[in-house]
């Protein structure tokens, strides 16, 4: 399977994607919905998390990927941009640095970057969004669990289900088996084990056009099944709603589920989730150094609204803290039901 970009698919054009989200508007707009509960314009609370996208390159081509990542994507963060990120991390009180991709580990400077962040901020939470299969993709990645342990990295990994059929249907043939092996390797060095302090959190995305159920209920089920069948332990399960963009949007349109999915998101709008959306305390840095309100806006090429601080090299905390967050219809994905963020449910 190729990325939408490599296929030259119309949905790889973000202008087209935005037009589509706008034109096929079902019912109310996101801004109207926010206004109903006094949240419009949407403003940041305080920037606590710096999420850095190290590139769109990935060893997988998952069907729902909002990044449209894959082996054919060559956009990765340059060394100089990473240095600019480090400058910001050094200067500011960033509590959490969240590294994502693609597969962030495929960036040739990944390890150096993690080491530098840890040196600069011994107490900060460093998250790596590891797709698990990367650990087994090449002998050079086999030591990742040990590397993560040494640098006290929190590992967050996707596993849409505890069986192969559903996992492979979303993430590709053979992904489940490799993910299980990788999780066992992480467990071996102490990840997800009681009192080890090494956090291993899993991400659940529905494998289809439906919303995630209760995070607590799914976590209990995942823990039971993964432990009894594969001896795997982990800390928390984050339920994440698929946002109607990129490859998931392509799936929704192709399967005829787009309208009913949007209706479902709008119907399930939850004001509490709206007040806790992650863009209020996060800044997302793109592979080219541009700044966004979140990783989804990044993929839609919707840069932060403040003209004077749109790139990591021009970082101005005050301006960013006072910006207006850019929103559109895809945002309904963050506010449905119990809400959704990179850290799971929000309400």
């Amino acid at each position: 399977m190729k990325s939408l970009k490599a296929q030259n698919h119309p949905l790889s054009n973000t202008q087209y994607e935005l037009q589509l989200l706008e034109s096929q508007k079902t019912g109310i707009s996101f801004s109207e919905k926010l206004a109903e509960c006094g949240l419009y314009p949407l403003l940041p609370t305080q920037i606590e998390i710096l999420q850095i996208n190290l590139g769109k390159m990935c060893n997988q081509v998952c069907k729902h990927c909002h990044v449209d990542a894959g082996p054919d994507r060559k956009e990765i963060m340059a060394f100089e941009t990473m240095q600019e990120c480090l400058e910001v991390i050094k200067k500011h009180d960033v509590g959490t640095v969240d590294l994502t991709g693609g597969a962030p580990e495929m960036n040739p400077h990944f390890k150096w970057f993690v080491e530098k962040i840890r040196q600069l901020k011994p107490k900060a939470t460093i998250i790596v969004r590891c797709n698990l299969t990367i650990i087994l993709a090449n002998p050079k990645f086999k030591d990742l669990p040990e590397f993560f342990r040494q640098h006290q990295v929190e590992v967050v990994s996707s596993l849409p289900y505890f069986t192969a059929i559903k996992t492979d249907a979303q993430r590709g043939e053979g992904v489940f088996e490799k993910s299980i092996k990788a999780l066992q390797m992480l467990n071996m060095v102490g990840y997800g084990q009681e009192n080890s302090g090494l956090m291993l959190n899993l991400v659940y995305n529905p494998a289809g056009a439906f919303l995630p159920g209760s995070q607590e209920g799914l976590e209990t089920e995942f823990k039971k099944r993964l432990k009894s069948q594969y001896g795997i332990s982990f800390n928390s399960l984050y339920t994440i709603t698929n946002l109607p963009i990129s490859r998931f949007l392509e799936y929704l349109l192709r399967s005829g589920n787009y309208e009913s999915y949007m209706e479902k998101l709008i119907e399930a709008y939850n004001p509490i989730a709206a007040s806790n959306v992650m863009c209020r305390n996060t800044i997302s840095v793109g592979w080219d150094g541009y700044l966004y309100d979140c990783d989804f806006n990044q993929m839609l090429e919707l840069k932060v609204s403040c003209q004077n601080s749109q790139h990591i090299k021009d970082w101005n905390l005050e301006i960013l803290n006072n910006r207006e967050i850019v929103i559109n219809q895809h945002c309904f994905g963050c506010t449905a039901g119990a809400g959704s963020s990179c850290g799971g449910a929000t309400a």
């Binding site: 289900y161 559903k166 529905p206 439906f210 919303l211 159920g213 209920g217 799914l218 995942f222």
Partner: peptide, 10 residues
């Protein structure tokens, strides 16, 4: 059916 899928039933 939808509810079961949402709650993680296979």
């Amino acid at each position: 059916t939808v509810d079961g899928m949402e709650k993680g039933c296979d």
